[in-house]
Design a protein around this nucleic acid. Structure first.
Length: 466
RNA sequence: GCUCCCUUCGUCUAGCGGUCCAGGACGUCGCCCUCUCAAGGCGAAAACACGAGUUCGAUCCUCGUAGGGAGCGCCA
């Protein structure tokens, strides 16, 4: 039987970093083992679930390329099924109706707490066999085993043992007829034949009670793998205050989806000393059993480094669409300047994100209006500036085929013609073309400006030469 | 309060009893390269939370302590 994993987010917000990694691991595990990956939306909380959040999650998954083989399934569409299973349990004597109000439960808990005990439901209606009655407080509770313990072998945490003494009779169906989370997951995972449950480790505590439900249902218990948390750079729980937490925010900030994936896969998992993983390598090398047990912090610096690695190694033609998208987002028309692929080649050693790249690319997409004073003073108000610029102007004008190589040759020739080194020509030229002292190599900088614009800017600079 | 989980350089991690006076990567610092800035190359500083055991020998096994986290809902 092929293994089936699932990612089951509740649509109460966008797909955040932690969720994205969980989804990635579920997806990788399925792909690695030749199984299936299922997407399920856990939307039983009608208060907090929204349509937009569902869409945000779907968008995030798509951007990351985590394609599901089935789904999305929606829990709200399966209400009848949950009720049916709960009734089966009732008939089998494995569940019962209880009628306490929320207030009563609350006082029960507080009382236990006061005695230094764990706050739990006392099982008042468990063995009463009272005739069924209508009551707004009526819920269905699970008859949790009273002795012994639940033991399971977590694929990342190892063996975990839980005494049934710690567990109370949890609510299966709420008074409003909706299933509770712990019940719905089990029913879903059983129905969807999930063989391996991979989720955040905030769920370890729920696992023993879920296992008891599997037993009551007479269904095989799946394997479990609980992933450690991802914390913010400050070691605190990830929150909105940490800035970009929605996965799509990383796209907006100029990261490549594959860079994020690569960063995420290494956060809590590793394969020797390897840092860079292609999609296929991830799939073939990933093993859920190699996942770490402890929480890790999210480090944008390393993400940025990885992003640049991909910016440098990917085919510029593949990056181009992402870059153009970013240009437009910044209000720049890609048509009004050099070929994006050429710009990428010139800038990828100098930018960690596409967003940075766009900022640095601005000079070639808009007329040059501003000159940096210090740059002008240092490189234009010099005795060699005029001869240097005049020489370059002449050589550039003579070029037949406007290419980076020919531009490079022209600049070298210009330097030679006035008996100076590259520096004496490159810097004034750089200021003339960009208004600043910093830009990519001078041949690329010139090439990207285009011949007519380059000549025009040199002429403008000549007017400022001291 | 109770239960469960976690603990190697600042960060991500390798390590599965001797190969470790602990390896790699990001970041930091220095040098080289150089038309600027980068990128790249080379190098440096930087960690086994603490305390008991077990063992001929512990980063690795056991138990405590400390610190951190999660859960204890008719939320997921």
């Amino acid at each position: 039987m092929t293994i089936r994993t699932r990612f089951a987010p509740s649509p109460t917000g966008y797909l955040h970093i932690g969720g994205a990694r969980t989804a990635l691991y579920c997806w990788l595990e399925a792909r690695h083992r030749g199984g299936e990956f299922i997407l399920r939306i856990e939307d039983t909380d009608r208060e907090r679930s929204t349509e937009q959040a569902v869409q945000a999650i779907l968008d995030g998954m798509q951007w990351l390329g985590l394609d599901a083989d089935e789904g999305p399934y929606y829990q709200t569409l399966r209400m009848d099924r949950y009720r049916q299973v709960a009734e089966d349990l009732l008939r089998a004597g494995k569940a019962y109706y209880a009628y306490e109000s929320k207030d009563e439960i609350e006082t029960m808990r507080n009382a236990a707490m006061a005695k230094g005990e764990k706050p739990r439901y006392n099982g008042f209606y468990r063995e009463r066999n009272e005739p069924l009655r209508d009551d707004p407080n009526r819920v269905i509770r699970f008859k949790n085993p009273q002795g012994g313990s639940v033991v399971f072998e977590d694929k990342v945490k190892g063996r975990i043992e839980w005494s049934n003494e710690e567990l109370d009779d949890l609510v299966l169906i709420r008074s409003d007829g909706f299933p509770t989370y712990n019940f719905a997951v089990v029913v879903d995972d059983v129905d969807m034949k999930i063989g391996e449950v991979i989720r955040g480790d905030d769920h370890v505590n729920n696992t023993p009670r879920q296992i008891n439900i599997y037993h009551a249902l007479g269904e095989p218990v799946p394997e479990f793998a609980h992933l450690p948390m991802i914390l913010g750079a400050d070691g605190q729980k990830l929150s909105k205050r940490h800035g970009a937490v929605g996965v799509m925010q990383y796209r907006d900030d100029g990261f490549l989806p594959h860079a994020l994936l690569n960063y995420l896969v290494r956060l809590g998992w590793s394969h020797g000393d390897q840092e860079i993983f292609s999609r296929d390598e991830m799939i073939s090398l990933f093993d859920i059993a190699d996942v770490n047990k402890s929480a890790s912090r999210f480090d944008v610096e390393k993400l940025s480094w990885l992003n640049q690695q991909y910016l440098k190694s990917d085919d510029p033609l593949e990056i181009a669409p992402h870059f153009e998208w970013q240009l437009r987002a910044a209000g720049i028309d890609p048509e009004k300047g050099p070929d994006p692929a050429d710009v990428i080649v010139a800038l990828r050693d100098r930018a960690k994100t596409l967003k940075e790249m766009v900022e640095k690319a601005r000079v070639w997409y808009a007329p040059l209006e501003h000159y940096d004073e210090a740059a002008v003073a240092k490189h234009l108000k010099t005795p060699t500036a005029r001869p240097a610029l005049e020489a370059v102007h002449a050589k550039l004008a003579e070029i037949g085929d406007w290419s980076v190589e020919n531009v490079h040759g022209a600049i070298e020739a210009a330097a030679a013609s006035i008996g100076e080194g590259m520096g004496k020509v490159a810097q004034p030229l750089r200021v003339a073309l960009t208004g600043t002292q910093v830009s990519p190599s001078i041949d690329h900088t010139t090439f990207l400006a285009g011949r007519s614009e380059a000549l025009r800017r040199i002429e403008a600079a000549l007017a400022r030469v001291g």
